[in-house]
């Protein structure tokens, strides 16, 4: 699964970057969402994908039963998801404000307003 995921994640990166290269500002937002999902999946994939091995310890034991998936990568991804939401909200509102002020959603026009 990891090998296939490597291609999927690469595709997601490509999609995200393609969207960020567009001039329409709404597409930039979509690119951002794609990019944060892609980065999360990248970390998750590289930590090794094991099914049926949650990093939980059954009651009364001191170690997980058998192998456990990498808890550190999971913790990293978990916080990254939440922060990603905060940053996305910030970006979206920023773009919205910029649009309100300059009345342009073509980034080339936006750029020209600060001259």
């Amino acid at each position: 699964m990891e090998v296939v995921m490597a291609f999927v994640v690469g595709g997601m990166y490509a999609a995200a970057i393609y969207m960020m290269l567009r001039r329409s500002i709404v597409k930039l937002v979509i690119g951002l969402v794609l990019l944060s999902n892609a980065a999360n999946l990248l970390i998750f994939t590289l930590a090794g994908m094991k099914s049926g091995a949650p990093p939980l310890i059954p009651p009364g034991m001191s170690m997980p039963d058998g192998a456990a998936a990498d808890p550190l990568a999971q913790a990293v991804v978990l916080t990254a998801i939440v922060i990603g939401f905060g940053v996305l909200a910030f970006a979206v509102v920023l773009i919205h404000r910029a649009y309100e002020v300059v009345k342009a959603d073509d980034m080339d026009q936006m750029k020209d307003t600060d001259r």
């Binding site: 949650p54 939980l56 009651p59 978990l78 916080t79 939440v82």
Partner: peptide, 12 residues
């Protein structure tokens, strides 16, 4: 602390 859950998930 013991089962899936925690501050992030609870807060969300």
């Amino acid at each position: 602390h013991d089962e899936p859950g925690g501050g992030f998930i609870g807060g969300l």
